[in-house]
């Protein structure tokens, strides 16, 4: 299976080309340049290095969220359009799961974490089983205090991974004590190669047109509107004219 994997969920950008379990090309940057300018050129380069044309691909795997809304849309638009226009399989995986996949200690609990600002994070809980992350608590947008409360139910060490862990290290340590384990910082960058390996066995998307990022949050405007109009619905929101 020839596979392209894309992760632009946050500041890092990662692209990989795989053939079955073999990683042929991988590029990961963490320079904060605009993903919209850099993603497609890196895909072009990576496929060229692997000796593939876009049409040779069998499957495209994308980190579908959570993460930066704009970053997610760049990766998902590119992956979705590529899969659609070339009639290829598309797989969307959790951006948090992909990051948790960097940890390979069998049996270990992992909490990958992205900052969502104002003491909130995007996170979930995974356990490494047979060398891959298996979800224990679903990905969510949650305050750091509530998250440590939830983790109280698991009286064992939890490995925290992600560049944003540093922001919350103090409250996490305070609440979890010795159970707080910091993954080695060199593992903090998501790797599309890991995403690609995880995506190889995942179920492809059934309804490609309906595939969108997992933002895990409504927009502020929609939350406000729903609070004021609990029973109203304007759907369909988009109409063909």
């Amino acid at each position: 299976m020839k596979l392209l994997a894309i992760d632009t969920s946050n500041r890092p950008l990662s692209v990989a080309v795989l053939e079955d379990a073999k990683i042929l090309a991988t590029t990961t940057t963490n320079v904060g340049r605009n993903h919209s300018s850099t993603l497609l050129p890196i895909i072009e380069q990576s496929l060229a290095q692997a000796g593939f044309k876009p049409d040779d691909l069998d499957r495209i795997v994308v980190a579908a969220g959570p993460g930066s809304y704009t970053g997610l849309r760049i990766g998902v638009t590119t992956a979705k359009t590529l899969a659609f226009t070339l009639h290829k399989e598309l797989v969307g995986l959790s951006s948090l799961e992909a990051l948790a996949g960097n940890v390979l200690m069998e049996g270990q609990l992992v909490s990958p974490l992205f900052d969502a600002r104002r003491d909130n994070v995007f996170t979930g809980l995974y356990r490494i089983e047979n060398q891959r992350p298996v979800q224990v608590i679903a990905d969510q947008h949650i305050s750091i205090a509530e998250w440590t409360d939830q983790l109280a139910a698991y009286p064992e060490p939890v490995t925290f991974i992600g560049a944003d862990v540093a922001t919350y290290e103090a409250p996490l340590k305070e609440q979890l004590g010795d159970r707080f384990v910091r993954a080695q910082p060199q593992l903090d960058l998501p790797q599309a190669s890991v995403l690609g390996l995880l995506g190889q066995t995942a179920q492809p998307v059934e309804h490609l047109h309906a595939f969108v990022p997992d933002y895990l949050r409504l927009t502020q405007a929609e939350r406000d509107w729903q609070a004021k109009h609990p029973k109203e619905d304007h759907a369909p929101y988009v109409e063909k004219i």
């Binding site: 704009t70 047109h209 927009t219 405007a221 109009h229």
Partner: peptide, 20 residues
Amino acid sequence: KRFGGVVPEVASRHHIEQVT
């Protein structure tokens, strides 16, 4: 219409639903 004007984040989300 719900918001009395275009909300950029909502617009972006609709575009990705529709584009393909």
